[in-house]
């Protein structure tokens, strides 16, 4: 089978437009707290979720909006949830990090790594109750150092669970470079557990679709779990209003107030050596610059990549985009209506 790029792009574009509405209402202050947006992860979500079947389950992390939309959740319900309304998906009780739909066997958690055990349980139920179905566990590479996720990898192998561990790797654990706190290579690590492990460019939706398709076939046939490492970027950083991005985008506004205290710290005679102090200062400046540059590269935007392949049929592309835009506009109006 070959992927249907038009269908995949439609899901990705719809997710992007929907989350742009979320971003706008967040900026208006209609969402009070954090908002972890899925910009940049759409190809991973689409390449996987579009192949799910009835009875398949999803264990989601704090960035569950794109997979849920693609799984068929009514977008108005999601938007109303983010607005904290009683007619939202979870009655306004959960918010964007705690989205649940029993109908879609989909559960989220804001605790890093917890989608591992959650996926294992869904997969166990699949094995007993719904042979041929499977579970997906979505998490970031930061979560791969969390004990419970590693434990569930072992469990999945020991029990030959129909589970796909999907690691969305953007190389940053909030402000920490993941490589600086991670030993070894993730694919090798997964293989060490006895997992079937595959690495894929998570900004290429067709590549994700193919890798995920093979893993799913394997899981449905009783071949056990797979670890899928998919590289991606987060175009808006860890969450909306992410400090490192703000520092990179507007260094004068964001960094100037920090300079006085930083210089005072750097000139204290007690503490680290002058080389250590200089290294810290350089690191602070470098991370603010690199995080923004690395994550916002146009060529790593999965939508830009997919669109390039479809642009030759401009009329069809524009018709698709117009249709999706209209839908999302209607969703926004419906959700904001009293």
């Amino acid at each position: 089978m070959e992927p249907d790029l038009w269908q995949l792009y439609k899901h990705m574009y719809r997710s992007r437009l929907f989350e742009q509405v979320v971003q706008a209402i967040w900026e208006q202050g209609l969402i009070s707290g954090e908002m972890h947006i899925g910009f940049g992860e759409e190809a991973i979500a689409a390449g996987i979720v579009c192949q799910l079947k009835e009875g398949d389950a999803m264990a989601l992390d704090h960035r569950g909006t794109p997979p849920l939309l693609m799984r068929g959740i009514e977008p108005t319900l999601l938007l109303r949830e983010f607005l904290g309304r009683p007619d939202g998906l979870c009655g306004g009780m959960g918010g964007h990090m705690h989205l649940f739909s029993s109908e879609h066997l989909s559960a989220s958690s804001g605790i890093v790594g917890s989608s591992g055990p959650a996926g294992a349980g869904f997969a166990l139920a699949a094995q007993h109750l719904r042979p041929g179905t499977l579970a997906i566990a979505f998490f970031g590479e930061g979560a791969t150092n969390q004990g419970m996720l590693l434990e569930s990898m072992n469990l999945a192998v020991a029990w030959q669970l129909p589970l796909i561990f999907v690691c969305k790797d953007d190389q940053w654990s909030i402000t920490t470079r993941s490589a600086s706190v991670t030993g070894g290579q993730l694919v090798e690590r997964a293989k060490g557990f006895g997992l079937h492990a595959v690495e894929v460019d998570g900004t290429d939706v067709e590549a994700v679709w193919r890798s995920a398709g093979e893993a799913m076939e394997r899981a449905r046939d009783g071949g056990g779990p797979t670890f899928l490492l998919a590289h991606c970027v987060h175009i808006e950083g860890h969450f909306l209003g992410f400090t490192l991005f703000r520092a990179g985008r507007d260094p004068i506004k964001e960094m100037v107030p920090l300079i006085g205290p930083l210089l005072r710290s750097a000139t204290k005679w007690k503490g680290g050596s002058s080389q250590e102090k200089m290294r810290s200062l350089t690191d602070i400046a470098t991370r603010a610059r690199d995080a923004l540059q690395e994550q916002t590269l146009k060529e790593k935007d999965p939508l830009v990549r997919a669109r390039q392949k479809l642009i030759s049929d401009r009329d069809r592309l524009e018709a698709l985009e117009t249709e999706v835009s209209r839908e999302i506009q209607d969703v926004k109006e419906a959700a904001l209506k009293d």
Binding site: A143, N145, S173, T175, K270, E276, S280
Partner: peptide, 28 residues
């Protein structure tokens, strides 16, 4: 977690050996 970027002044004064970042591995 994230102590170098969250505690910028301490990180600057004391350096990476004494302000040390961890993986998301709380139990460890």
């Amino acid at each position: 977690e994230d102590v170098q970027m969250y505690r910028l002044n301490l990180y600057t004064q004391f350096g990476e050996r004494r302000i040390r970042e961890t993986p998301i591995s709380e139990s460890a």
